[in-house]
């Protein structure tokens, strides 16, 4: 199958074959990362612009390593110190990014949908590295790759996503990557942190909502815990962090409700003792460090696929 997409904005309209193609390429990139010299010349002469209008070290560094492992030139434009902070409009920023002549723009932005805005207005390929509450497609794909590695095949598997679903781009992109691969997803978390429509039976295809985490975990094949932003308490959405940890935190006892060896994932950075117990985060089921390695490989695969697509679809 020839790769057709020019941008990676969200995977909500991707076919199973497209997702599998990325995951298969990711396997080859994992092998590259295991070599004594972790650099191949594939994207020599290409420029990747990392445009992070919202602070993020982990994702930015992951993309940077991915781009460098393919020998691309990398330019960083971060929120602090750039004109984004000085009130420059996104429209102006796009003009600048386009003038800089990047082949790929990797962007993180606080506003849901911002990557669509940029993709419409630039010749470069755009990879969404997280937009508002909407999507974080590379995280979804790396979680799917990690779970597939642990479980072999995701067909018929049931994965639990627990936490602040409403404000989570990771949850949305995990759903968008896992469900097409045949998995079902059980969403769990405080009712105030799950979109009202999803609580009222109109959950996305392949997903259900179960507020009781114990019941959600019973017999599950894996769990993804989401980071809890402490601001949610101040917004009146949670009575206390303590109560959240007790009711929706992944404890050792809870994790045992899943199938033996069912893996535990977390997109990071973790609040240990809130959404996940330290012993679970660093325990035998935890694939949290594997996620980090796989993250670089997934991003290499996407950079490779996008930089290889025709320059301009006329």
């Amino acid at each position: 199958m020839t790769w057709q997409r020019r941008h990676v904005l969200a995977t909500d309209d991707w076919s199973r074959a497209e997702i599998e193609q990325v995951l298969d390429q990711t396997g080859a990139m994992v092998e590259v990362l295991g070599r004594p010299i972790r650099r191949t010349p594939a994207l020599r002469g290409r420029t990747v612009i990392l445009f992070f209008a919202e602070a993020s070290t982990r994702t930015r560094v992951s993309f940077e390593l991915a781009a460098k492992a393919l020998s691309a030139d990398v330019t960083n434009i971060t929120a602090s110190g750039s004109s984004v902070e000085k009130g420059e409009t996104l429209r102006d920023t796009v003009r600048t990014l386009t003038a800089l002549g990047g082949d790929v723009i990797v962007m993180r932005h606080a506003a849901s949908g911002a990557p669509y805005f940029v993709a419409e207005r630039t010749d470069a390929a755009v990879i969404n590295a997280g937009d508002g509450w909407h999507a974080h497609p590379t995280q979804g794909l790396l979680d799917a790759y990690t779970l597939r590695g642990a479980l072999g095949d995701l067909d018929g598997r049931r994965i639990v996503i627990v936490g602040d679903i409403t404000h989570s781009r990771v949850a949305r992109s995990d759903i968008d990557a896992l469900v097409p691969l045949g998995a079902t997803v059980t969403l769990s978390g405080p009712p105030t942190l799950v979109p009202s429509a999803w609580r009222c039976g109109m959950t996305p295809r392949g997903t259900t909502y179960e507020p009781d985490l114990d019941r959600a975990l019973d017999g599950a094949d894996g769990v993804i815990a989401l980071r809890l932003q402490k601001e949610r308490q101040h917004a009146g959405l949670l009575p206390s962090i303590r109560e959240y940890a007790k009711t929706w935190g992944l404890s050792e006892e809870r994790v045992k409700r899943m199938r033996p060896e069912a893996p535990v994932l977390h997109p990071g950075p973790m609040n240990e003792g809130v959404e996940i117990a330290a012993s679970v985060a660093h325990g035998a089921r935890s694939l949290i460090e594997t996620q980090v390695t796989n993250g670089v490989a997934v991003r290499m695969a996407l950079l490779y696929l996008l930089a290889g697509t025709p320059e301009q679809v006329a």
């Binding site: 849901s112 508002g132 409403t166 979109p195 009202s196 429509a197 999803w198 996305p204």
Partner: peptide, 15 residues
């Protein structure tokens, strides 16, 4: 509007 579409798009809704 707050509903299925706002949930999917990750936009704050107006119920």
């Amino acid at each position: 509007h707050e509903g299925v579409v706002s949930a999917r798009l990750g936009l704050p809704g107006m119920a």
